[in-house]
Design a protein around this nucleic acid. Structure first.
Length: 273
DNA sequence: AAACAGGCCTAAA
DNA sequence: TTTAGGCCTGTT
């Protein structure tokens, strides 16, 4: 294995690789035996590792400035954000426990497609379907002598048939993927434009597509459109809310940080069932 | 073997 | 407006 160029990521305190990659927001990063993570995002394969307090990622300084800085949301101070969601004892505990989580700014189309796949599936299967999709239709990229595959563009999938998707074994989600791909490819659904609108507008536009409901739409808003008030509620979140807010709950108390509050609640619930 | 998994859709009250 | 059942597939 030849030496791979690597640069240091400068971060604030709240940056925990395990929590960031395993709090349910992404599906393409995997832990290595040494505790580093390898994954593919934004068209690049990369490995991220911790060395004490320091953090390194393969690639160039340009990659950090142009890709990873935004992807890892490095320009926001999560210690401040974390404090802002401590509205009660429960949230204090949850955000304490989840300290280190950051909300990634992921590719919009990849996020939409991945969360369509996520419905009624467990994480291992979501990951295996996404991986199969990339292997079949993405571009090959190399890292440390190994081949990885980028997430295929909407335009690449738009021309496919359900039969073409059969090998990835995504079941009844195949037509949903294709219709979303065609909507994005044709411009009927402009994800970048939606990222400049508000929660209600963006959510409505996404939910107009078949196979995209409240939950999937909310994940897309939060994880790729930078709409921080989005508050995805899945089965884990339902449990958490029933348990801690039996009288009902309005995420508006968190304002623009509702999504981050959701991540803390979700992670706390999953790790302490 | 039958139930279930990080939803969504449709039909029916 | 809310609720039940079905849906591809893989795993337990």
């Amino acid at each position: 294995m030849r030496d791979v160029e690597e640069v240091e990521l400068v971060t604030s305190d709240d940056f925990d690789l395990k929590k960031i990659f395993e709090c349910g927001q992404c599906f393409r990063w995997n832990e290595n035996p040494d505790g580093s993570y390898t994954g593919v995002a934004l068209g690049k394969a990369a490995r991220v590792r911790r060395d004490g307090e320091r953090l390194f990622i393969t690639g160039t300084e340009d990659d950090v400035q142009n890709l990873w800085r935004g992807y890892f949301d490095l320009d926001r101070d999560y210690r401040v954000l974390r404090k802002s969601v401590c509205v009660d004892d429960y949230m204090r505990a949850a955000s304490d426990f989840g300290a280190g989580i950051r909300i990634l700014n992921q590719d919009r189309w990849e996020t939409l497609c991945s969360f369509i796949i996520s419905q009624c599936n467990n994480i291992p299967r979501i990951k295996s379907i996404v991986e199969a999709l990339c292997r079949a239709f993405g571009d090959e990229v190399e890292l440390e002598g190994r081949a990885y595959f980028t997430f295929p563009d909407a335009s690449r999938l738009a021309s496919l048939s359900e039969e073409d998707l059969a090998p990835i074994r995504c079941g009844y989600r195949a037509p949903y993927i294709l219709s979303a791909a065609r909507a994005v490819d044709s411009g009927a659904l402009d994800l970048e434009a939606l990222s400049k609108t508000d929660l209600a507008t963006a959510k409505r536009a996404l939910m107009a597509l078949p196979g995209i409901g409240e939950k999937v739409a909310s994940c897309v808003l939060l994880f790729s459109l930078r709409i921080g008030s989005a508050f995805p509620v899945d089965v884990w979140m339902k449990k958490a809310l029933d348990q801690h807010y039996p009288g009902g709950f309005d995420p508006a108390v968190f304002g623009e940080n509702a999504g981050l509050a959701q991540q803390y609640m979700f992670y706390y619930q999953r790790e302490n069932p």
